[in-house]
Design a protein around this nucleic acid. Structure first.
Lengths: 240, 240
DNA sequence: AACACCGAAACATCCGAGGTCTGTTGCAGG
DNA sequence: CCTGCAACAGACCTCGGATGTTTCGGTGTT
């Protein structure tokens, strides 16, 4: 095994064993390199790799630190991974979201504070009648993120965040807006909000299921009918 | 932004744009370095990072290749991330698994082939009466993986695989065996298997829920109930 | 007390020289 | 003609040092 990989494991072990706690500073490059028995160059490769997945945080002129290691930070790295999956496996990712989102929404109906619910309502009102695609995406993202956050489970929240990341969403929205499904989506968002406000987890879950399934159905038709993206075929889809 | 990070993005873009397809070989280090406008050392850091998350695959003496980019490979990297979360957030991870596992089991009841179901049954029979902890963990892992795989959704499968990774499991099992819950677990596994074999998705889902919830409940008690105030403080726990 | 300057510490980047592994090529033997 | 072995070239691996940049903290001036 390459020395760099060994170094990655060593550092990982140092963190897991508790020798390095979140927020701690690592020994300086030269020192740590000697201690692990390799050159600075190789050590830097290891550090860079751990940096990509948000385990370490290097600050030039200061030092290298262990991050907070909170779930949202680490799962965040998954966004990067999801970016690599575009057309082919989008439906698989969406299917997972269809499982998680209703569950998160139900949990949110139980755990969200009144203040957070109020903010959720504000969010709905902020959207103009004819919003730009960018505003729409941003609002949609915030709405679902707030609900996920309201589930009280940071892992679930981060996971959903990664799945519905900014990447795949824009394209979907663009398509949806072209078919004038904005109104329907807004209705569903409102319904989800009201179910949460009424503290009705099962109702919230159902609306969330309907909501995600609608997008899924639409997407399935959009890229399922044929590989030809210009084929708009059935405008139906979406919901019913 | 550091040149290395720029390089990571550049390579990422080259892959996403299709310039580099899965399985393709990258230009040699020196060449790519010049093309991206940085030194070989810095490029190597970028490559190493992308290697950690299974996007690239370097083979000494041969060259650097883009991996298949299949979901299982990329999500696999999440196992590495999950390893960093031990005692504190295990329950959050388990809660997510409690959402996904029943859904996957229900899907498996619908989609698994008869041959795969037969293999699942074989797996159950392979376990001895008084297995070692290692054998138990291995068998349990295989059982759930096979079901996840049977869901037909590779993303869901990989995600579950990461969540129930080998790390957190061993400890849980050790505890469970000490309380003699092995028999109960085996019963539940059998029930799940029979529900799948009978093609009863809802029954399979319920058994899976019961199964995971049992582990969750046990773990919650084992770790100390004082964590979640909303959690029922019933001493009920898991076993009978 | 507030601000500007300066130097030490630490990371960022680059370079060039060996080392090691892998796939291929060419030759000899069957 | 096919097979097996050995040498070769290509590509990555590792190293250590030199130089640039950024940050932090101490110092002196206003």
């Amino acid at each position: 095994m390459p020395v760099t990989d060994v170094a990655i494991d060593k550092i990982k072990d140092m963190i897991i064993s508790g020798e390095l706690a979140p927020g701690d500073r690592l020994p300086k490059e030269a020192e740590l390199a000697q201690r692990l028995g390799l050159s600075r160059s190789s050590l830097r490769e290891a550090v860079k790799a751990l940096c990509l997945i948000r385990v370490l945080d290097v600050r030039q002129g200061d030092g290298t630190y262990v991050t907070s290691l909170e779930p949202n930070l680490l799962l965040d790295a998954m966004t990067f991974v999801v970016d690599f999956h575009r057309d082919d496996t989008v439906l698989d990712f969406l299917a997972v979201r269809r499982i998680l989102e209703p569950a998160a929404t139900a949990l949110a109906a139980l755990h969200m504070s009144d203040a957070d619910i109020a903010e959720l309502g504000t969010l709905l009102g902020e959207l103009e009648d004819s919003p730009t695609v960018e505003a729409l995406v941003a609002n949609d993202l915030q709405f679902h993120r707030k609900i996920a956050d309201g589930s009280g489970n940071p892992v679930l929240c981060s996971l959903l965040d990664s799945l519905s990341g900014p990447t795949a969403r824009a394209r979907i929205w663009r398509g949806l807006t072209q078919e004038g499904a904005v109104a329907k989506t807004r209705e569903q968002h409102t319904a989800i909000y009201e179910a949460i406000a009424a503290r009705e987890p099962e109702l919230a879950r159902s609306w969330a299921t309907v909501h995600v399934a609608g997008v899924e159905q639409w997407l399935r038709n959009a890229l399922g009918t044929a590989d030809d993206p210009t084929a708009d075929a059935e405008p139906a889809a979406e919901a019913s």
